[in-house]
Write a protein that binds this DNA or RNA. Structure first.
Lengths: 197, 197
DNA sequence: CCGGTGCGTGAACCCTCGTTAACATCCCGC
DNA sequence: GCGGGATGTTAACGAGGGTTCACGCACCGG
């Protein structure tokens, strides 16, 4: 409803009803969990009744699926693009990846929350698709971390990547208490220190 | 059922039915989310039918409440005890806190998951109680981090603490792929680097 | 005008699931 | 041996909530 999430609608100025619904749903899902949010709640958040949702989505699960797929795709695309644009230096690649993840986490704390909490309430097929995208994004990190730590094996790099994600994605817990710029700088510095430790 | 979670039962050798239920529930809640797990599922996991649960707990919510309260209490107690035993050196206190959190996260990945995912599906009173305990535990970290970074204000220390929690609590995502000792060492090193950055 | 298409509404349907009730069983102290 | 509490079982109730249905209405091309 506010400026919470920018990642879900392409046209931010006058989002279509469909995009309004997705964004409101993301917010509500993040606050209470997708299973605790009723279709009526989502409708009310955009000023319509519950069943009106079905003019735009096949089901409640379809909403969640589209939400998670978009997030995963955005992360994967953004991550690969940044790395490709960062040249050959592993440290430069790492820094740009961190900056990207920090920006995303600060822009979309709600999506971050939903992303790793409600994957389980997805139909098997959709869940598998999301996991494929997630895995590919993780692999982008694993590659870069592997070049930063040439002595480490892939499993170690993978654990490192997950740890950095956890660090950066702490934004939903600490958001708003500090000016955004400060938070971004702090998280980036901590993430780089952790990733290179 | 296996050796998954050691934090919930005092007598690990022959846990009472009540403790079996709590442990099985923690496992299931972590895998699927508390709302997606039925009372029948929990019962089946310990070899009884669903309604048998009500011989040991007043309600499904009471199970979740007790689970989260125990976790929060354990963390707060353990954290304060470790800090008190670590002497006056802030870095020594930080290191022992990190070691404690890493051990807990590796011993109880399921509890970690439930802890910060299902707080929202708790009755207001219980949720408030859990949050009080959480806050006090965070303050233990904030105090130590404040002494490690004398120039930082409390808000910054708090953000740092949450970031370190996120890093260490990534165990549910990366568990098992690496021998435990290696994971513990890696996480501790990363956490210390991040906390002192 | 006029019919169709898009978007919404309120009512009803029905399945899931937490909870309770009524009835067995085991076991232990007297 | 026997009464009673602890522990389970099956059957049933009832609320909540996702989904469908039948209908209204605005808008738009011909």
């Amino acid at each position: 409803m506010t400026d919470a999430n920018t990642a879900l609608h392409a046209d931010a100025s006058r989002p279509s009803r469909r995009e309004q619904i997705l964004q409101a749903a993301a917010q509500l899902f993040a606050e209470r969990g997708s299973r605790a949010v009723g279709v009526d709640d989502v409708g009310a958040a955009v000023g319509v009744t519950g069943p009106a949702i079905y003019r735009h989505f096949a089901s409640k699960d379809a909403m969640l699926a589209e939400m998670l797929l978009r997030i995963s795709e955005r992360l994967l695309e953004g991550g690969t693009a940044r790395v490709a644009a960062a040249g050959d230096d592993p440290m430069a690649q790492l820094r740009t990846l961190i900056a990207f993840q920090v920006d995303f986490a600060l822009d979309n704390p709600a999506l971050i929350t939903v992303h790793d909490r409600d994957l389980g309430s997805l139909a098997d097929e959709d869940a598998a698709q999301v996991r494929r995208l997630q895995r590919r994004y993780v692999e982008v990190w694993v590659d870069v971390l592997g070049r930063v730590h040439p002595a480490s094996d892939a499993a170690t790099s993978r654990a490192r990547a997950h740890a950095v994600f956890g660090l950066v994605n702490s934004t939903p817990h600490s958001a708003g208490r500090l000016p955004r710029r400060r938070t971004a700088a702090l998280l980036a510095a901590m993430a780089e220190a952790a990733a290179t430790a």
